[in-house]
């Protein structure tokens, strides 16, 4: 009997150890990733200052010039534009779903959103090439008197917007659901119309949540690689308009890693690009989480 009991204790001990180890691995992963990237990129950072690398658009790897500015600006363009497209759509949809639509509409929307979120990004990329690229080059660009192949910043942003919509929408629906009915009743009972209530009370109350939904959207958009790479053109030049080709940071890494590594410092430069990406995404995620937590505290 005694032996059996020891065995049982021992076993539950071992299981506990495994659980803790698994947990530790997950907790440590981001740090390991970050340190790995840093160690790899330190070679380039020792030679040139971060400032110099970030604010130079001179990208000539053969002569050892690695200026990230055009890539960083491409990334900013694509991210900002996609958010500009996806943001208002998500906001209006979320308001309609939570305040105007019947319950069953929301019940249908949830699986639709999940499906949209689960589609592999390469499919969005193919869809972009087949539909959005010709649409831009044949119909949209001519309106502005511009001739383009269709592989532009705008194309990338549209594809990206479609991809981040499910994520932003999901959070926004939750944010709007958290607003207590009594608050809306209070506003209505003071003589406000439904739209006034939404505009003056609901959106104001949900504001931190809305911002954090955008923040999570940004961090997704900033890092999205394949779909954008397929439609954005990939030209290492600072873009000056939405109908020009761009070359975002993730596309730079995905296109070149493994191919150009015979050039000295090239892999270090790509690792630095990855590190920058990593930090930006981390910061946006972190800020959004803080805002979500704060808005939960306020609504409670």
């Amino acid at each position: 009997m005694a032996r059996f009991r020891i065995g049982r204790h021992l076993r539950s001990r071992i299981h506990l150890v495994w659980m803790v180890v698994s947990l530790m691995i997950i907790l440590l992963l981001p740090f390991i990733l970050g340190i790995g990237l840093y160690v790899k990129s330190i070679l380039l950072l020792e030679e040139k200052s971060l400032w110099e690398l970030l604010f130079s658009s001179d990208w000539r790897p053969l002569s050892g010039n690695f200026g990230f500015l055009s890539f960083a600006i491409s990334s900013l363009w694509v991210t900002a534009l996609s958010l500009l497209i996806a943001g208002p759509i998500c906001l209006l949809t979320a308001i309609h779903l939570t305040h105007y639509a019947k319950k069953w509409v929301l019940q249908i929307m949830h699986p639709v959103i999940d499906i949209l979120a689960g589609i592999p990004s390469v499919i969005f990329g193919v869809w972009g090439i087949l539909v959005i690229v010709p649409f831009i080059s044949r119909y949209v660009a001519p309106i502005f008197g511009i001739e383009t192949s269709g592989y532009t910043i705008l194309t990338g942003s549209i594809v990206l917007a479609v991809m981040i919509i499910p994520f932003i929408l999901n959070i926004m629906i939750d944010v709007f659901k958290m607003i207590p009915d009594e608050l809306k009743e209070a506003s209505l009972s003071l003589g406000a119309s439904k739209w006034q209530t939404i505009k003056l009370v609901v959106i104001r109350k949900a504001f931190p949540g809305i911002i954090s939904a955008f923040g999570l959207g940004i961090s997704r958009a900033f890092g999205e690689t394949i779909a954008v790479l397929m439609v954005v053109g990939n030209v290492a030049k600072i873009p000056t308009g939405v109908f020009q080709a761009g070359y975002p940071l993730p596309a730079l890494i995905a296109n070149n890693y493994g191919e150009m590594l015979s050039i000295p410092m090239y892999d270090s430069a790509l690792m630095l690009a990855a590190l920058i990406l990593f930090c930006v995404v981390l910061i946006f995620n972190f800020l959004s989480r803080i805002l979500i937590m704060r808005s939960e505290k306020i609504t409670n």
Binding site: E182, L183, S189, L190, A192, V201, R204, K205
Partner: peptide, 29 residues
């Protein structure tokens, strides 16, 4: 209906101040 509702002040179980400052809460209606 908004005019009808203005004839009735509502006080709920827990206070739900509107997400704005004290002055604007009263000025809202």
């Amino acid at each position: 209906i908004t005019i009808l509702r203005q004839k009735m002040g509502l006080l709920s179980q827990r206070p739900y101040p509107l997400p704005m400052n004290i002055y604007n809460n009263v000025a809202y209606g």
